[in-house]
Nucleic acid binder design. Sequence first.
DNA 1: TCCATTCTCTGACTTTAGTCAGAGAATGGA
DNA 2: TCCATTCTCTGACTAAAGTCAGAGAATGGA
Lengths: 301, 301
Amino acid sequence: MDSTLVSQVRQFNRTVTERVGALNERFLGRDRPLGQARLLWEIGKEGRDVRRLRSQLGLDSGYVSRLLRSLQAEGLVTVEPQQDDKRVRNVRLTPAGRAERTLLDRSADDLAASLLQPLTDAQRTRLVTAMGDVERLLTAAIVTITPADPEHPDARHCMQQYAAELDRRFEHGFDTAQSNVARPGELRPPAGLLLVARLHSQPVGCGALKFKPDAPTQIKRMWVDESARGLGVGRRLLYELERHAAVHGTRVLHLETNRSLTAAISMYRSAGYTEVEAFNDEPYAHHWFEKHITPTPHEGL
Amino acid sequence: MDSTLVSQVRQFNRTVTERVGALNERFLGRDRPLGQARLLWEIGKEGRDVRRLRSQLGLDSGYVSRLLRSLQAEGLVTVEPQQDDKRVRNVRLTPAGRAERTLLDRSADDLAASLLQPLTDAQRTRLVTAMGDVERLLTAAIVTITPADPEHPDARHCMQQYAAELDRRFEHGFDTAQSNVARPGELRPPAGLLLVARLHSQPVGCGALKFKPDAPTQIKRMWVDESARGLGVGRRLLYELERHAAVHGTRVLHLETNRSLTAAISMYRSAGYTEVEAFNDEPYAHHWFEKHITPTPHEGL
DNA sequence: TCCATTCTCTGACTTTAGTCAGAGAATGGA
DNA sequence: TCCATTCTCTGACTAAAGTCAGAGAATGGA
């Protein structure tokens, strides 16, 4: 890895955590421990169940329990069992809790404003733009891409979303029954491979390979969730699929797509796929692409 | 303040501190409290005196003392009185301490690399560029600009640096004696005003006004330290001077400058100053500028 | 109807990160 | 020479942020 990049990232980490961290304490931690404040914030106006609070903040169950009790003692929250599963408990803000949360909200606004205040308009715009870029790319960096079984709940979620989106976007909708859609077994080794992209362990994208003896490997089910677009997830999925295909000995990749998926088409083009004659009779396809790759069997094993 | 900007800054603070903070702990805080690690890092290869450590990390003297003793107990540092002032104590790393610091260094590199690793080359470059922007602008945001007495050590430092820089940059050097340089009294209210820009309480720039009865107010001693260029400090100094001048009732501002100071000249132009005939006989000047402003007496009082 | 599992809570801890009020030594200037 | 100041250290605290090992209630499937 380029050491200049690494040292610039380190410099950034130092400066930003120091600067923003210091402000965080000065503004938010004024009369309330940061832990309590974070919890109060995360409960939200609608309330939340304890389990979700815990996983979102990454805290010990005992610790959260204690924090909740201290908030309860101050009359800021109420805790009661969920209707349908009485093991789970729901936390809600009382009116006093909502008022306190609004105060925190104001403090966070003040903090942000204090960072912007000394800057000129032009500088403010540049700062916010750069912050957006950093955020987006840091988010992209924590997206993981791993093989998954087609029957795994995350995989099924992706497939459903995939079909639902095609149905929305195709001129005449999309019906799984009419398409040459792959059955789960075909996307499971050794017949194929399914990759799932996850962000904060939520599935946000997928892509699959279907290996064919003595024929090009097919790319299937490329999908990226609305919320994760613009992070380069599609490109990474494609790249990972190509890598796996190469290990499997693939020389040629095939994929077909619908003309309504313009962003995908231009991504395929820019990733080196060239349009070819129709190589199958998929009813929903308008474009057929192929790419030649270099097999690298057993690499990294 | 534009609430879109504010909420974007908040979003950034949340995402980035969470993400970088989590990594910080996972990589750096593995087998050593973060406080110790920071101290170990800050001591540096050359050693440092305790006073400076304290001020750089912003910690209580008793706390630093205790941290140092725990590092000493592990054989990582030695502490001994300074030669010339035995109240001050110097801290140095032992070979074991240096080894430990190298380990920390490696961890910090790994952390940074782990952020970059999942990204494509293009994304890495964009991330690092955006990080640089954010850092620079956050640094700019904590520069303070306040009036100072011309005899204050920080003010004197600025004046000396100002003269030294002119001497370096002018073709034939710069001699205070030959210039119509203002004496301290002239830059002190009510005759004038001196502003000092500071970063982390170190002086990094200055600018002054000289009020003249029934004549344009003069801008003098505009200087920004090498280390703080590109942060918009000059522009902010100029803006603040104009604001003070307006409050004082000024209608026209005058300033003269040397042709070697090209960056300053273009800043004056872009800030609305127009070149005019020479209005004085300053021997080092090649360009004379003026700007009309609207007086705002007693504003904000 | 069991029984393993899930979810939350409690009690008993620990570690980290400080703060505060001096004490004691050294220094610098009047 | 004195005295205020500076610098570091020590003792005596505190608060925050967790960790860990259960206990007890509820649930869901065999």
